[in-house]
Design a protein around this nucleic acid. Structure first.
Lengths: 230, 230
DNA sequence: CAATCCGGTTCTGTCCAGTAGAACGCACAT
DNA sequence: ATGTGCGTTCTACTGGACAGAACCGGATTG
């Protein structure tokens, strides 16, 4: 009987213990002491040291001069391969940059992963000093224009359709962050399947209704352009 | 007795088996069949399926509609945290972009990891159509201006010092790729420790001796600027 | 049409890999 | 001098993980 692979019973407990060590890190917690890892994962320190030794050997973890653990270079290397698999290569940054220039706001590209969105590319606006979000960030799908777009086109969520405009894009104001407004639209690949969502976002005080409408036009046009290379 | 951590005997074989599955992927081989993974890793297919189940569950691997394995989103997310740890945030892309604009060539930032260099940031020149190198790429240290710089300042290699210019930078022509010339210089952090190397590279037919000298001046200036934020 | 091949999946007896958790050493605080 | 907390080492014990055969289904070949 063929179970769904992700939920199937097969598992290797040691591997999942090791991965749970890696999962303890976040952009707010980029280095951790042994005791902190023990607290976070519930693993014994001796267990962590053994697992960490293997992770270090393969470059997934490292230890700094103060014996604190940090994530290792193999993650960046393999993560970059994951991103390359979306096939946007050298095309997306110029497109994002044009959007930044034309709108004065930050431009991003998100993909749908499970029940979240993941930021693959981001070009910050020189104007946005406290709009801090990094490539690699995970965000929810239930707030923000890009979340609605990914939910509507990719996750088959009926209610997200209602949040879309007739042109297929979406505008949100102060949903994920009260001060931020965003516009987004879907990028489809040649087969018509959802590839990701292109978004422009900025402080709502500057990114007003008129500018949002104009930005969405530019985003929709950029999505059509990206759709020809995906 | 305190052994060097990376070479110490402790290891968890199952974890290293799982990681060897991830290591089978590269930018040239972004999706693999079960049999290909078996060939590449030497593991039994049943072993791979068990290990892969855990990797999938944590988002490190996924399977597409054709049952081929691909790297998963967790690698991009954690890899981005690794890159953030270098603290270059929003400062480096504008610096790289200025170098691209001023020189007409591609600009990159590399860090030293073990006995290799790893590309963390890259801004491609619109001119360079076949100068294909991605963020995340690993390169050797023994060829190319950036490799020499990282070896000289970070790996304590005596002979690399000789390849440096009096101003601390380096120029290379056709070392790693016969058609490519590059200039590079070190970025130090506030403590004076090596942070990474900034490089500009392009086709040697266009990136001639005069332009390289000028580019190196700009790179050295940019390195000083980046040194104040690292 | 039957036989063969190949890739992916399932199953289970066996064994040793991996864990739990105590003990230890060291630095720092009281 | 004593107590605390962190990181490291050690080992008896157990169940996690593997090897590898068997199976299934689709594609190919004769």
């Amino acid at each position: 009987m063929s179970l769904d692979r992700v939920t199937k019973e097969h598992r290797v407990e040691s591997v999942e213990r090791a991965l749970s060590i890696l999962e303890a890190f976040s952009d707010r917690r980029r280095n951790l002491a042994l005791s902190e890892l023990a607290d976070e994962t519930g693993l014994y320190k001796s267990t962590i040291l053994r697992l960490a030794s293997s992770l270090e050997r393969y470059g997934y973890l490292r230890r700094d001069d103060a014996s604190r653990f940090r994530l290792g270079p193999s993650l960046w290397r393999l993560g970059s391969i994951y991103r390359q698999d979306f096939g946007l290569g050298e095309h997306i940054r110029p497109v994002l940059r044009r959007l930044v220039t034309a709108t004065g706001e930050t431009a991003s590209f998100y993909v749908l992963e499970m029940d979240e969105r993941l930021c693959l590319y981001r070009e910050n606006s020189p104007n946005s000093v406290r709009h801090h979000l990094e490539e690699g960030s995970r965000l929810s799908l239930d707030r923000g224009a890009a979340g609605h777009v990914l939910r509507a086109y990719g996750a088959g969520s009926g209610n997200a359709q209602q949040l879309l405009r007739p042109d297929g894009g979406c505008i949100s104001v102060g949903e994920r962050n009260p001060d931020i407004a965003a516009v987004a639209a879907p990028v489809h690949d040649r087969d018509g399947a959802l590839h990701g969502a292109l978004a422009v976002s900025g402080l709502r005080s500057r990114f007003d209704a008129e500018r949002r409408t104009h930005a969405l036009e530019l985003v929709l046009e950029a999505c059509r352009e990206l759709g020809t290379v995906a």
